[in-house]
């Protein structure tokens, strides 16, 4: 299973970004391999359509799960049916992944 998380800084100790499309980084975690990688958000400074480009990024990584406090309408429309979105806790990336795997995060509807 692949999890994508918008983050403020890089790595698993980062806090989660309030924005999805305009997050500084994306943390992509593979639960089977137990490996995570940080990607710079290339569209951060693009005035138009970041939500769409982010959805494109998520789908390109064949993600199943997003952990993000909110998600724009345009991204959601594209991801619906392919990806589930969960609401993070207040802690860092690592803790959120753990909480998600333990079934302690709620799905964003």
């Amino acid at each position: 299973m692949i999890i994508v998380i918008p983050t403020k800084t890089s790595g698993e100790k980062s806090f989660i970004s309030e924005n999805f499309g305009r997050a500084n980084y994306f943390y992509v975690y593979d639960t089977q391999k137990q490996i995570g990688e940080t990607y710079i958000n290339e569209h951060l400074d693009n005035p138009h359509g970041v939500g769409i480009k982010t959805a494109e990024f998520v789908l390109k990584h064949k993600a199943d799960i997003i952990i993000s406090p909110r998600i724009g309408e345009k991204s959601m429309e594209l991801l619906r049916g392919n990806v589930k979105v969960f609401i993070p806790n207040d802690s860092i990336v690592k803790e959120n992944i753990k909480d998600f795997l333990d079934g302690n995060l709620k799905e964003l509807i």
């Binding site: 569209h43 693009n46 138009h48 359509g49 970041v50 769409i52 480009k53 959805a55 494109e56 789908l59 345009k74 594209l78 392919n82």
Partner: peptide, 19 residues
């Protein structure tokens, strides 16, 4: 497209007309 009104979503080019 400088306005990101087009994107490859899975196996199709999609058009986002509002952009």
């Amino acid at each position: 497209c400088r306005f990101n009104a087009l994107a490859i979503i899975i196996d199709k080019v999609r058009v986002f007309s509002s952009l």
